[in-house]
Computed example of a mutant assay.
Amino acid sequence: MKRTLLLALAALAALAAACRGGDPVRFTVLQWNIWQEGTVVEGGYDALVDEIARLRPDFVTLSEVRNYGGTRFSERIVRSLAERGVRYYSFLSDDSGLLSRHPIADSATVYPLADDHGSIYRLTASVAGRPVAVYTAHLDYLDCAYYNVRGYDGSTWRRIEPETSVEEILRVNTASRRDDAIRAFLRQAREDEAQGYAVVLGGDFNEPSHLDWTPETVGLCDRQGVCVPWTVSTLLAEAGYADAYRTVHPDPLTHPGHTYPSDNASLAPERLTWAPEADERERIDFVYYKGEGLRAVEAKVYGPQGSVVRGRRAEERTADEFLTPGSAVWPTDHKGVWVLFEMR
């Protein structure tokens, strides 16, 4: 019964969209790793609430939700946002989280957290009568093979010889559970696609993109001259999902879009790096999408313009467009990704 009703609603929404013409529906998505709920930086939690209230994205995909001390982070942040005059909806989750300015029709666990190997959650909502399925992902942080390339073990972060064999890099990479989680997402998302939903996935993937490790970029950021067809981004591309940032800014040379490690004026640089003797800058926070008439029209790096390079603060001198924080406190060691979508 429920599936029949959802199919009927999706069909009606598609028919209404076809008849409407005119201006497209617009909505915004913010992907943000909030670094242990903003607890690492003094004043971090209030800063992240203030920033969400200021930006008011339609959907926020969160990484590093912990529910410390038996608290429910989703309820706490919704309450804090309401105190600032902004209404959001959410539901209980662990490790990753979702906020929506639109009433949530349904929510589900797609890839449950187990032994800190990552998680994926899903919500469905309606934006101006159009059905949308939004997913949040915080993928496994172990077997983080892009560190192996830079001379650090991607599970222990001890110094090793830099790995330059693509076969070995991918072997380490797929020893993680990141690909398992994304396959679970793709199985669920196929049902959403069949029902006419526009699908959006935001997350901290703890893995780079094959669109960034190209022949033109092999000399950047200690990549040791190798091109790597990174697993998660390749799986998503093969399934027809578009990388929002790379769609709007297709050149990784001019717009690398680094999201980690972000500078943070509140902390010493050594608190912000896993590889203090390397240039570990990467774009590991993403927003992906797929759907009839859905397209990304703007995409910005959200956060401070500075990064950490070889254990030191460094300004990013790229063509990336930055969405500057309004708060004096930056609550995290990541930069976020802000995307404006249109649906026709």
Rank of each mutant, 00 (worst) to 15 (best):
D222P: 00
D222T: 03
D222G: 01
R223Q: 10
R223G: 00
R223H: 05
R223I: 01
R223P: 00
R223L: 03
Q224D: 08
Q224C: 09
Q224F: 03
Q224A: 13
Q224I: 08
G225C: 10
G225L: 08
G225S: 13
G225E: 14
G225P: 12
V226S: 10
V226E: 07
V226P: 09
V226R: 11
C227R: 14
V228I: 12
V228G: 13
V228P: 14
P229Q: 03
P229H: 04
P229M: 04
W230L: 08
W230N: 09
V232R: 10
V232Y: 07
V232C: 13
S233N: 11
S233Y: 08
S233I: 05
S233C: 07
S233V: 06
T234P: 04
T234E: 07
T234D: 06
L235N: 02
L235G: 09
L235S: 06
L236P: 06
L236V: 03
L236E: 07
L236W: 00
A237M: 09
A237Q: 14
A237L: 08
E238K: 12
A239G: 02
A239C: 01
A239V: 01
G240T: 04
G240P: 00
G240R: 05
Y241H: 04
Y241K: 07
Y241R: 08
A242H: 09
A242M: 08
D243I: 02
D243E: 06
D243T: 04
A244H: 15
A244N: 15
A244G: 14
A244D: 14
A244L: 11
A244Q: 13
A244F: 12
Y245E: 15
Y245F: 15
Y245I: 14
Y245V: 15
R246M: 09
R246H: 09
V248G: 01
V248E: 07
H249M: 07
H249W: 13
H249Q: 07
H249A: 02
P250W: 15
P250R: 15
D251L: 05
D251E: 06
P252V: 00
P252E: 06
P252R: 00
P252A: 02
P252C: 01
L253D: 01
L253R: 10
L253N: 03
T254M: 13
T254A: 15
T254H: 11
T254Q: 14
T254F: 06
H255S: 13
H255D: 11
H255G: 04
H255T: 14
P256L: 07
P256M: 07
G257R: 01
G257F: 00
H258N: 11
H258I: 06
H258Q: 08
H258Y: 15
H258G: 08
Y260C: 11
Y260M: 05
P261M: 02
P261T: 09
P261S: 14
S262E: 06
S262F: 02
S262G: 11
D263I: 08
D263E: 13
N264D: 15
N264I: 03
N264S: 07
A265K: 12
A265R: 15
A265Y: 07
A265I: 06
A265F: 06
S266C: 09
S266P: 00
S266K: 08
S266E: 11
L267D: 01
L267F: 03
L267Y: 03
A268V: 03
A268D: 15
A268I: 00
A268N: 02
A268K: 04
A268G: 02
P269N: 02
P269T: 01
